[in-house]
Amino acid sequence: MSQLQQSASSQATGNLNMSISAEKNGTWQAVCPLEDIWPNTGVCALLGGRQIAIFRMKDDLLYALDNHDPHSGANVLARGIVGDLGGEPVVASPIYKHHYRLCTGACVEDADTRLNTYPVELREGMVWVQVPA
């Protein structure tokens, strides 16, 4: 199992405290064991009042972005089908099927819409996400 995935800004640490404060990027929080996310699906985490969708892709690559689908107004992106368009990983909203890029949060069909993405890491079998302060 590969240990560290996605997110250019993420830093690997061995600290297993449930909450680690970072200097400027917010707080790392442990979310769930990796097994709780079935391969090629997403789950939604509630972190500091925010709904964050976390996706587990091929080779356990992890991505995190807002769960809120601005096109439908529903909090549902974690339930979308994941895959790729032209090689770029995306999730399709289950309501009106807009695609969002997992790396950037940009909407494929609507250039004006972009979701927040969050650093996410796998540390010894646990999924961690960094939530803005």
Binding site: V76, R79, V82, I95
Partner: peptide
């Protein structure tokens, strides 16, 4: 290995509504 393939409604065995 089949769950991740299912469309919105099959994925939770019910019809998803506009509010989720």
């Amino acid at each position: 290995d089949l769950a991740s393939l299912q469309d919105s409604n099959d994925y939770f065995l019910g019809n998803i509504q506009k509010d989720g």
